[in-house]
Design a protein around this nucleic acid. Structure first.
Lengths: 155, 155
DNA sequence: ATCAAAAATGATACAACGTATCATTTAAGT
DNA sequence: ACTTAAATGATACGTTGTATCATTTTTGAT
């Protein structure tokens, strides 16, 4: 199972690297390490938790400033998502897929920060957008985040 | 127009006071002042912005710690809402109403922090809850917040 | 291979939001 | 008036995040 996870992580890293190559950007060692930390985590991690990850698993302390910059880079490559609500970050669950996806929605457990990436049905999103437009507002993004409790955390 | 706003604020304060009385709590001077600041503001304010409000309008600096406690109290009395997404606070737009309301949803302009309180249609909320439950999560609250741009802020 | 320019990373300081803790003041009830 | 509880103040600290400048690493042209 650990082996399986490592396998998935390795495939994702390979995919991430080739995506950067075709885009003319570089997946440097530290960027790969930060991405690995997120891929291997079952929950969303804060920037500072990722510096801890480096300290604990890699033997050196990556400065928070660097982590923020690296996360910004990875987000630009669509390899990670920043969750505003939790102020944490997750690896995109679709790195391994080639095909296009609907914009993802995130269910974030407020207790344990486990994150589930779902796709809300189109007509539901349309209704929501209409409700918002009726109030003369527009959704800033179709990538919604919902404060939730996961099945592990509710009794 | 300033007169009209003051009028509305006064009515809301009166209603807030009587609500506290019937609940056996007290709307103290400072609590009233913080609530006034929110009522008179057309946008969500942070705790620290409310200390500024006291400094600028009331001539003394209410400590941030006190503001946080007062906001917590007012939230408990359903007089203000805390907006997690914006880390700011708004007066409940239904203080003046007596009747029950559906749980409110908040549209928060990420540019200017203007806030619109709406009620999403029941069947839309039901669909959303079903989608979340299919992923084995539960919404932590039916009081949703949406990151938006208001009509003043988009071109 | 060398060297200049660009990209990436490090170090430091600081800002905003928020909580924990203990001290002080104010109000309530006997 | 006095005791107790409620409310507020003061201080210190924790977390997330940005601004800025210095240093290192990589790239590309010669």
């Amino acid at each position: 199972m650990a082996a399986h996870k490592a396998q998935t992580t390795l495939s994702a890293l390979k995919q991430a690297e080739s995506r950067c190559n075709t885009r003319g950007t570089r997946l440097t060692e530290k960027r790969r390490q930060v991405l690995t930390g997120l891929l291997d985590s079952k929950k969303a991690l804060s920037a500072y938790e990722l510096t801890d990850y480096c300290r604990d698993h890699l033997g050196y302390q990556l400065p928070a400033m660097s982590v923020y910059r690296i996360l910004e880079f990875l987000e630009g490559e669509s390899l990670v998502h920043r969750l505003d609500l939790a102020k944490k970050y997750v690896a995109c669950s679709h790195i391994l897929c080639d095909h296009e996806h609907d914009l993802p929605q995130f269910l974030i457990c407020k207790e344990c920060y486990r994150v589930q990436e779902i796709s809300i049905k189109r007509n539901l999103m349309q209704s929501l957008n209409r409700s918002v437009e009726e109030a003369d507002f527009k959704l800033a993004s179709q990538q919604l985040e919902f404060d939730c409790v996961c099945s592990d955390c509710y009794e």
